[in-house]
């Protein structure tokens, strides 16, 4: 065996070692989260309210808040992102205006989420006087979510072959009808995957929320679904600590005796939720595609 071959063997062995080391780290991460966390998860843990000073608190309200904020943020951002993606896909010409638009979306997507959170704090909490509330949090998450969701939807739209568009236009339909009624349905699998993946990101976001949705989770009356009552779960003006914020909060200043158990349980729930989002993004996207292309 000559020198270069030996060198090659050696280098590749090194690469394998590096990759192996990374695998160990990744495996440790996931293993740690689940091994320390899963034993702490019980129905009681998932449904009961948190306790500030005693052991045995749960994450029920935080979990509900996380989902509620996610749904609201998605409901607000979806039409905006869809509209923006449609403009980029259909109407944007190759000129300075388009490149300015694309640059500003990139800027927004790379902004640190804490900056987005502070902007939300300034605008919604202070300026609009919404206070630390669901609505402030949802609007801030919308800003956080818009650039990535727009990009995901635009990617899915541009994956649809051009002849679909041509077909619509050839029938005397407008570009707008063509995109809304032909291209969007055809790209639905991709769009749905994109939405679910974005949901995972929104679900785990904390920095954008600590100064907008707040860091406290007042008790809720789960029998009262009138959004105008302040202790109704649906009330948009109540402060709402989410699961991700909860993990940060109790680790920063929590004093309950079972701090570690609550944190690791919450972390496991969070990662589990993300895992479910990831898997379902693939699964649902594929199912929708199959449904569309074969027998109904």
């Amino acid at each position: 065996m000559n020198r270069t071959q030996k060198q090659s063997r050696f280098a590749i062995a090194c690469l394998k070692a590096v990759a192996g080391f990374v695998v160990v780290i990744l495996a440790f991460l996931i293993g740690y989260i689940f091994i320390t966390g899963l034993p702490n998860i019980s129905w009681h843990f998932l449904t009961s309210p948190a306790k500030a000073f005693n052991a045995g608190g749960g994450i029920g309200i935080q979990l509900f808040n996380s989902f509620y904020l996610l749904v609201l943020a998605m409901l607000i951002s979806l039409p905006i992102a869809l509209g923006a993606a449609i403009y980029l896909n259909v109407y944007a010409k190759d000129n300075w205006f388009t490149s300015m638009i694309k640059t500003s979306i990139e800027i927004l997507s790379s902004l640190p989420s804490v900056v987005v959170g502070l902007f939300g704090f300034l605008l919604f909490v202070v300026q609009f006087n919404y206070g630390f509330s669901i609505i402030s949090g949802a609007l801030t998450l919308t800003i956080f979510n818009l650039p990535l969701l727009t990009r995901n939807i635009e990617d899915s739209l541009s994956n649809v072959p051009d002849d679909q568009r041509q077909g619509g236009l050839g029938l005397g339909l407008s570009k707008y009808e063509t995109i809304i009624h032909i291209v969007v349905p055809a790209s639905l699998p991709g769009i749905i995957s994109g939405i679910i993946l974005c949901s995972g990101r929104v679900f785990g976001e904390a920095a954008a929320l600590i100064y907008t949705a707040g860091q406290s989770a007042p008790a809720l009356n789960f029998a009262d679904w009138n959004p105008f009552n302040i202790d109704s779960p649906l009330s948009p003006l109540r402060p709402a600590e989410t699961l991700a914020v909860h993990i940060w909060k109790i680790n920063s200043e929590g004093i309950m005796p079972d701090l570690t158990q609550v944190s690791s349980g919450s972390a496991a729930v969070l990662v589990l939720a993300i895992l479910i989002f990831n898997l379902s993004a693939r699964f649902i996207g594929r199912k929708v595609f199959e449904r569309m292309t074969s027998v109904k």
Binding site: P161, D163, Q164, Q166, G167, G168, L169, G170, L171, G172, L173, S174, H181, I182, P185, A186, M292, T293, K296
Partner: peptide, 29 residues
């Protein structure tokens, strides 16, 4: 231009049915 294209129809190189049922493909416009 939409009225023009309705009166002067077009069929393309590659078959490009929409991701809809056959019925909806025909009746969509």
């Amino acid at each position: 231009v939409y009225e023009v294209r309705r009166r002067i129809g077009m069929v393309f190189q590659r078959p490009n049915p929409f991701a809809k049922s056959i019925y909806d493909n025909v009746t969509f416009a």
